[in-house]
Nucleic acid binder design. Structure first.
Length: 300
DNA sequence: GCCCAGGTGAAGC
DNA sequence: GCTTCACATGGG
């Protein structure tokens, strides 16, 4: 029997858990990951840690670009660059914004806020859970849901990663019961989430197909779900399917439009909807996210 | 205690 | 069409 080799081959291999993404324009990770479009990112000593699909990943600024570290080796990175939308010509997006005082103020406040391209199911489910909840609470509910129903993801023996869970699949949630979902503190939203999971799991709602549909059709399909109205549908269109003209009108964005564009006037909702639909150009959804971020963070 | 939160559906006019 | 209200829970 030969013994163990005296000299072990040196592992000279690239680090397939690390990727550096060079960028040509601003990318503010905190504003992007922590401002109410995705709900599973948290800041650790190593950087912004979260889960994309079945990948645990940690992101941090690296010069002008982003450094990504995954918990486990990966063979390709398209899932990450797609999620982060790092190939987008961001300066072109900024050029399409209306040149008015509110947009200038929002851009002066934050220049690197981006829109993510999220998984449609996770996005839909998360925003079903979002109604009349503060962002911190949405995060808590989503984390609880993942802990209870998501597939476990192991952590490597390196700093920055802890064991975590994937976002639960529609099939898994479809066979949950309402009481179990309510134990994740989602309250009256439980039957809505359950109905959505069952509709997707049964193939009645084909989320993959919606991305190839005209936006108005996709919106109408989503709004057939109980608990999904115009705002949640628009969030899914914008954050998951990348329909860039979708303009979610929530309490904050309405507040921003009223205060910044029509100060001191009583403007009804119908007029504001019309303004939102016509004023902001081909990347209106992007502009919306800037107004949302600005009005939430700047005290008047 | 009170008000509000990345809303929606149902009931009332 | 528009307005009002309940819904479940927790942060500030």
């Amino acid at each position: 029997m030969p013994g163990a080799p005296l000299i072990r081959p040196t592992q000279i291999q690239p680090h397939p858990t690390v990727l550096r993404i060079p960028l040509e324009s601003d990318y503010d990770l905190e504003a992007t990951l922590n401002s109410g479009q995705a709900f599973r990112w948290r800041l650790t000593e190593q950087g912004w840690t979260g889960v994309i699909g079945h990948h645990s990943v940690c992101l941090r600024p690296d010069g002008r670009g982003i450094q990504a570290r995954t918990a486990h080796p990966v063979s390709e990175w398209g899932w990450l660059t797609d999620y982060l939308q790092t190939d987008l010509n961001f300066d072109e997006v900024l050029r399409t914004f209306p040149d008015d005082a509110p947009m200038r103020a929002a851009l002066a406040w934050c220049r690197g806020l981006r829109l993510l391209r999220q998984d449609p199911w996770e996005c839909l489910a998360s925003f079903i859970l979002s109604s009349t909840k503060q962002i911190v609470q949405i995060r808590q509910i989503v984390e609880s849901l993942c802990r209870h129903y998501g597939e476990p993801l192991s952590a490597p023996d390196v700093p920055g990663f802890a064991p975590t869970h994937a976002f639960p699949s529609p099939a898994r949630l479809a066979c949950a019961d309402e009481a179990g979902l309510r134990s994740c503190r989602m309250g009256f939203r439980a039957p809505y989430l359950l109905a959505a999971a069952q509709s997707v799991a049964a193939g009645q709602l084909d989320l993959a197909r919606l991305g190839a549909s005209p936006p108005d059709d996709a919106r109408a399909e989503l709004m057939r779900l109980p608990g999904v109205g115009p705002k949640i549908a628009d969030c899914v269109l914008l954050f998951a399917y990348g329909f860039q003209t979708s303009f979610p009108l929530d309490v904050w964005v309405l507040r921003a439009l009223r205060r910044l564009y029509f100060p001191g006037r009583r403007i009804n909702l119908t007029l504001l909807r019309g303004f939102a639909a016509t004023h902001f150009g081909p990347y209106a959804g992007y502009a919306q996210q800037y107004l949302f971020h600005y009005i939430r963070n700047v005290k008047d």
